[in-house]
Computed example of a mutant assay.
Amino acid sequence: MKRLKAYLAAAGLGVLGLLATASAGAADLLDDVKQRGSLRIALEGTYPPFNFRDEQGKLTGFDVEIAEALAGKLGVKPEFTTTEWSGILAGLQAGKYDVIVNQVAATEARRKTFDFSEPYVVSSPQLIVRANETRPLRSAADLKGKKIGVGQGSNYAELARGIEGAEVKVYPSAPEYLQDLASGRIDVALNDSLLIPYLAQKTRLPVKAGAPLGTVESNAIPFRKGNPAFKQAIDKALADLKADGSFAKISAKWFGRDVSKPPVAP
């Protein structure tokens, strides 16, 4: 009996050793990306100026150019997938793509499921109102009884649901709720503060910047947990883009300033 117990114990230790070896030898996402020769990138494709299709149908925008530059630093080609925001995180978890480059807030709740790169954009939530709006819509208290348009599954939707007495309407993407805002179907919209200057310059929608709401937050690039080599590589690629001036150049093209740094108060 003692010999049997000793044998079983040894066998158990052997299995544990094999599992540990297998775990230690598990391929990192960086190995997959390098072997494939491409970085699979998900974004909405309907979120200007971050990512959208131009008049020729070509995918463009700030996030697109940053993603292309990151892939270049990794020595691979960018491979884009466009999908609605409502399912984009689930797709990442299912392994349909490697990263999301789409202004994803690195919240504590999301960090429980995904790992994130270092932040690459600093921004804050901001209300969007009609150009002829005269009501004092400046705080959560002012929004009681009002209809707020937000993107489905976004952190802005979570913020809006916390406003007492407000009616929250969710949409697949920004164009839909901005159109409803312009036509008066909702009272305000809530989105990234960086979106407002683009709307003012590039669209004909009768909307304008409203009051800031909430706190300054950082956006980063999420990917599946357990890929330390990939995280190190993506962080280094971001750092290199900032060091060689590429990031600042792309940022200035779309926003007129370096969005990796907090805005300077006027």
Rank of each mutant, 00 (worst) to 15 (best):
K144D: 08
F223K: 03
S260E: 01
T203F: 05
A11K: 09
T215S: 12
A211H: 08
S183A: 13
V15R: 01
G151N: 12
R40A: 14
F80Y: 10
I234W: 03
A200H: 11
A200Y: 00
V207M: 06
A157P: 03
A248S: 12
T60Q: 10
V101Q: 01
A229W: 03
L19Y: 10
D98M: 04
A94I: 04
A9R: 11
A166Y: 01
G226R: 05
N227D: 13
T60A: 14
Q201N: 12
P262L: 07
L19I: 13
L205I: 08
P136T: 09
P119M: 04
A20S: 09
L178H: 02
P48E: 09
I250F: 09
Q93N: 12
L13G: 14
L190M: 14
G256M: 05
E217A: 06
L159F: 06
G210Q: 07
K58V: 11
K236A: 15
L238M: 14
A109D: 13
P212S: 12
V101D: 01
A106E: 13
S154A: 10
G57Y: 05
G245S: 09
K146W: 05
A67E: 04
R224M: 06
P263Y: 00
Y120H: 10
A166L: 05
A10K: 12
L18V: 15
G162T: 05
G72W: 04
